[in-house]
Amino acid sequence: MKKITDETRAEVSEVVYGFFAEECEVGIEEINDDTDIFQDLGGDSLMFLELIEIFKKKYDLNIDLKTIGKYNVKHPVNTIGELIKTQLLIIEHENAILELD
C-alpha cells in the first residue's frame, strides 16, 4: 500500500485538470472539482482509460484496468473531484482497491 502525501494529492490534481483542459479544449480555469466530465466537458470513457494508463506509468502501479472497471460499476465517477478521489485510492491500494468494498 502506497502512502498518499500532500504532494501526491497536488500532483494527481494537476495532472487530471491539465489532462481534461487539453483533451476537451477548455481553459483550466473553467474546471473545478464539481465539473461534470461528461455533461460539462463532453468527456468519454476512453479518456478515463487514458488517464489511468498515465497514472499507471507515472506511479508504476500494479493495477489491472479490469479491476478499475469493476470498482467503477459500484462507484461511478462523474465529476473531476470524484475522479481525483478514485485515482488517489487506486494509487494507494492498486489491485486491492476491490477489497475496500
Binding site: V15, F19, E22, I54, K57, K58
Partner: peptide
C-alpha cells in the same frame, strides 16, 4: 504530437 508531448511533460 499532443499525446506524445504530454507524455514528455509528465515524465513518462
Amino acid at each position: 504530437q499532443k499525446k506524445l508531448s504530454r507524455s514528455v511533460r509528465l515524465e513518462l
